[in-house]
Structure formats: C-alpha cells, structure tokens
C-alpha cells in the first residue's frame, strides 16, 4: 500500500509539473519521471515485465528522442500557455468515464499475478495474429516516416 501511494503521488505530482512548467526541457524531464512512476505502479501490481518494458520503451526510448528533438530545436523563449483548458477537461472527463467502466467490469479487479513466461506464450500463441498486425502497422508507419523525410531530395 505504501509503495503504491508513493508511486501514485510521484506520478500525479510529476504529471502536474509536466503540464504546469513553462520550461520545455523541464516538462519533458517531468514526463520522464511520470513514466517511471507508472512503471513503479506496475511493480506494485506484480507486473515486473510491464514495468521493465515501460521504462525501456517510454523513458529510455521516447523521452530520449523528445530530449534529442528539444536539443536540436533549442527553444529559447518560454512556452506560453496554449489555452487548451477546455479541450483538456473534455479529454480528462472521457478518460475518467473509460476508467470507471473498466473498473466496474469483473476482469479488472482479479489482480492475478501473471508469470512473464505465460505472458509471452499467450502473446505468441493465442494473440499471434493481432501481434503480427501491430508489427505490420509499425512497419507502415516507419516506411511512411522515411518517405516523408526523403521528400525533398527525390
């Protein structure tokens, strides 16, 4: 309970800071901390594999790329508030609705410990088709990105 509370507080605090801070670099770093705290919540739920993948892909991968983009762009001026408060509130309301529906479904509260090996077997056997479709989707996105990036010198 205490680890969960600590991870949740860090997650909420760093999430608020990521939105509130005017410094783009700080915002990205707070986002990184929020993603690590999410991994911490996975750990308290006995989902170590998810936690490790969360840190590896989101903080180690995506936040790193964002930092790199920020470094190349060198934002000198402080970011002004984008005035999207109403849209943000609408998104938050939709998210709260989805969460409340999920929490009421019987599958959500079992809290069963899933071995990493079992998880791997399920993904590569029963869920093999969606898994492969997902990787094809990522491949399409990658090829699209390359095409867009090469447009000028073609």
């Amino acid at each position: 309970m205490i680890p969960f509370a600590v991870a949740s507080l860090v997650l909420l605090g760093s999430g608020v800071m990521a939105v509130r801070t005017r410094d783009l670099v700080h915002a990205v770093l707070w986002l990184g901390l929020a993603l690590v705290a999410t991994a911490g919540i996975y750990v308290t739920m006995d989902a170590g594999f998810m936690a490790a993948i969360q840190v590896l892909l989101y903080t180690g991968g995506i936040v790193t790329l964002m930092l790199f983009a920020v470094m190349l762009a060198r934002p000198d001026a402080e970011a002004a508030p984008n005035g999207q408060l109403r849209a943000a509130l609408a998104v938050a309301a939709v998210f709260a609705g989805v969460v409340s529906v999920v929490l009421r479904s019987p599958d959500a509260t079992t809290g069963a410990h899933i071995e990493t090996q079992v998880l791997g077997a399920v993904i590569l056997n029963q869920l093999a088709l969606p898994f492969e479709v997902l990787s094809a989707l990522l491949l399409v996105a990658m090829i699209g990105a390359i095409v867009l990036a090469r447009k000028k010198d073609a």
Binding site: L29, G32, V36, A52, I53, V55, L56, T59, G60, G61, V63, T64, L67
Partner: peptide, 10 residues
C-alpha cells in the same frame, strides 16, 4: 538491467 541502463542518457 537493460531498462535501467537505457535511462543513463537522462
């Protein structure tokens, strides 16, 4: 170990 070391760039 790998995910911790991927944080080293931060």
């Amino acid at each position: 170990a790998l995910s911790i070391s991927s944080l080293m760039v931060v």
